[in-house]
Design a protein around this nucleic acid. Sequence first.
DNA 1: GTTGTGACTACCA
DNA 2: ATGGTAGCCACAA
Length: 103
Amino acid sequence: MDKLQINEIIWQVVSSIPKGRVATYGQVAKLAGCPNHARYVGTTLKNLPNDSRLPWHRVINAKGEISFTLNSDAYQKQQLLLEAEGIIFKSAKISLKDYLWRL
DNA sequence: GTTGTGACTACCA
DNA sequence: ATGGTAGCCACAA
């Protein structure tokens, strides 16, 4: 299993996250058949071209937060994309964890 | 080969 | 609940 295939699987898993739901890096790694590679998922997403159609914004960390430094422009961009899908987590009662992708 | 780094996690105090 | 820490592992320099 070479790494190009791993990337393809990761892309496939990410693209299969239902709209309006989110998944953690660990979750994606696991579904891709690579437990303990949560970090690699992040690196992979980082390498994505800007015009990629992949819903990378639906991938968050295990704490149920966006994995960018708070209020960085990348952070705000992701938050915007999420809100565009109806994922609002600024509310006191609702956090990103409430949108976790469950099978 | 070695070292440092990171869009991560699970534990533990 | 919260912060620190130790695993984790691919990748680039």
